[in-house]
Design a protein around this nucleic acid. Structure first.
Length: 311
DNA sequence: AAGACGAAAGTGGTTGA
DNA sequence: TCAACAACTTTCGTCTT
């Protein structure tokens, strides 16, 4: 029971919302509130046992049972289910009477599991989240974060009157940015049935109502992504990032679409490193116009005195 | 002929009176 | 609520390689 002891040092209520519903994420070393998504504690130590078993008896005693809980299932993956087989534990067929009993049990088991409208909503929402995040090939961390944001929105009664799809998409957008793997509004809108405009509106609602703290989209994150897509060398990618940093220092990044800045930096860097990409190629994969890339890159060249290193 | 260039006109969103 | 505005887009004719 030395494990219990270690855990007593750790908080068990969320300072943000007072919920006791905290889960420990040992991969990231964080204690997270499942109600509002706040990180209650970080840098915690994974004290789950690394058990060894020397006999089958020990193994039976020490096995850990069940799958890890996950926020992407509406009940966090904790529920039990009554099996569909009409047989008892010994594999014998059930009598007619028993069969009927089990039918009713199953029915009520399902009903109680998915009973509240919130739960029903979440069930649908998590399915949609699954679909969307795999379409966008988003990693698990983003998915979990999106799920947290959505739960928070649900608790704040922001979903009623709006479509689940809409709010899930907005949550995904927010989560991707929070995790520094931004997807553009366009990319997400393309995978859903709504416009960039509607998505943006839903996202702003989330931002405002939930007071989410989301870092401004950093062009550097887009540089990594798009440079990889354009097969730019590591050196050229690093140069492009450096360029963005210089641009930030020169105050010329505010108000500009971070995507177009990334595009311009990639363009310049590709030329400087003898890996010349055409404006059209870049425009294609980052989905801004050539004209915009031109404008941005002219500006960068001028403000950062890049011309001198070109000749 | 492909790519780069930039002018002109239009769009959607933000800001400030 | 309206007008001004900045960023971005679309389109297109022209220059450069």
């Amino acid at each position: 029971m030395s494990q219990k002891k270690a855990n007593e040092e750790i908080k068990n209520t969320c300072p943000d919302c007072g919920s006791n519903d905290l889960i420990q994420d040992n991969q990231r070393g964080e204690l997270i509130c499942t109600n509002c998504g706040a990180v209650v504690e970080d840098m915690i130590i994974d004290d789950s046992p690394e058990w060894r078993a020397y006999s089958s008896e020990e193994r039976a005693n020490r096995s850990r049972v069940g799958s890890p809980t996950t926020l992407t299932l509406h009940d966090k993956g904790l529920s039990t289910q009554i099996g569909q087989e009409d047989r008892d534990a010994y594999g014998r067929k059930l009598s007619k009477n028993q069969k009927y009993q089990f039918y009713r049990l199953r029915k009520w088991d399902t009903r109680s599991r998915i009973h509240s409208s919130k739960d029903r909503n979440l069930t649908k929402a998590m399915r949609e989240l699954d679909r969307l995040s795999s379409q966008l090939s988003l990693p698990r961390s983003v998915k979990e974060t999106a799920s947290l944001i959505y739960r928070k929105a649900l608790n704040a009664n922001l979903i009623r009157g709006r479509s689940i799809e809409e709010m899930i998409a907005a949550s995904v957008y927010a989560a991707a940015r929070q995790r520094h793997l931004p997807r553009t509004l366009d990319e997400i809108a393309a995978e859903t049935r709504m416009s960039k405009k509607e998505l943006g509106r839903a996202y702003r609602l989330l931002l405002f109502e939930l007071a989410l703290k989301i870092p401004l989209a950093d062009p550097i994150n887009y540089v990594s992504r798009y440079a990889a897509e354009l097969n730019l060398s590591g050196k050229a990618t690093a140069d492009a990032k450096q360029m963005i940093n210089d641009a930030k220092r020169e105050k010329i990044t505010t108000g500009k679409d971070p995507v177009s800045l990334a595009a311009a930096a990639i363009y310049i860097s590709s030329i400087l490193n003898d890996e010349q990409l055409t404006q059209a190629e870049i425009a294609e994969v980052v989905s801004v116009t050539e004209v915009t890339i031109r404008n941005r890159y002219k500006e960068l060249v001028k403000e950062l005195d890049i011309a001198s290193s070109m000749y």
